[in-house]
Amino acid sequence: MKGLIFKLLIICFVSLNLFSCKKDDTFEASIFDTTDTLDVHSATYQFDSWLRTNYLNTYNLDFRYKMQDVGSDMEYNLVPTSFEKSQQMAKLIKYLWFDAYGAVAGPEFLKEYGPKIIHLIGSPAYNPISGTMLLGTAEGGIKVTLYRCNDVDPTNLTQLNEYYFKTMHHEFAHILHQKKNYPVQFNQISKGLYSPLGWQNKSASEAASLGFVSPYAASQIREDFVEIIANYLIKSDTEWNNILTLASKAGVDNSNKTLPDDGVDGKAIILQKLAMASKWLNDSWNIDIVKLHTEIMYREAHINDILN
């Protein structure tokens, strides 16, 4: 009986506790401007309006050129992109990346599968200890961060491709394979040849001779997969054939020393990887990689149309 009273009191105790706080507080009005209008008095109004029309309304994408420290990797020392370079990047990215995909895969493709946020960072993200720098990241298929934007030179196609557009196609390929995985057979092609910590010590020749399109492709399987796509898309036919030629020769290291025969047919491996990636793009996403490459090359040849 005593035990029963004790239990009942505990129930009362808990009940009182619950019911005494039954009335919820009412929420205050939102502090945010829910009408979300742009400030016509802002120095950036014209550009912000352009971004709204060309990115937010067209691709459902928030183009963040005003750097948000909390939205970046706080481990790195970083700086924002200049307003001038942000405008150049916005035009270039739309023309050479988004509209190129739009022309080949249809206008809805990037709206549905593309990143929802592009965040520009002015400086590279250096890792002084390893001596490497980050050019881009893709987070959860949602956000692409592009670094080193203050160095962009719209008249230098080689630089544009190497530091920015290869990164963009690279990161977007990550987003796509995070949604639909790449073929498991790809994991077997260069098994045992990846070097997550030592890739930066490989020369382009050494990497190619082992069947990688770039030294970074030799870091991990998933990087290898997206590097094949990114490099094929942005390299001219001559540049691509140069990689294949390099891959068919014995590797030469960074000190210009010819390496011993690795027993790998680099060219055949790269072509095998490209074929697998092409099929995956076609089967999973209905994207013809050759058409997309051709579209990008055409746009690169006409880049002055958007810069003037």
Binding site: M67, L78, S86, P124
Partner: peptide, 23 residues
């Protein structure tokens, strides 16, 4: 207070480019 586009005066103190990748 954030200065969120690049300013060559202020951000020279934050730019990691020089020296040594730390700035």
């Amino acid at each position: 207070l954030t200065f969120n586009t690049y300013n060559k005066v202020l951000h020279a103190f934050s730019n990691p480019v020089s020296p040594n990748g730390y700035g």
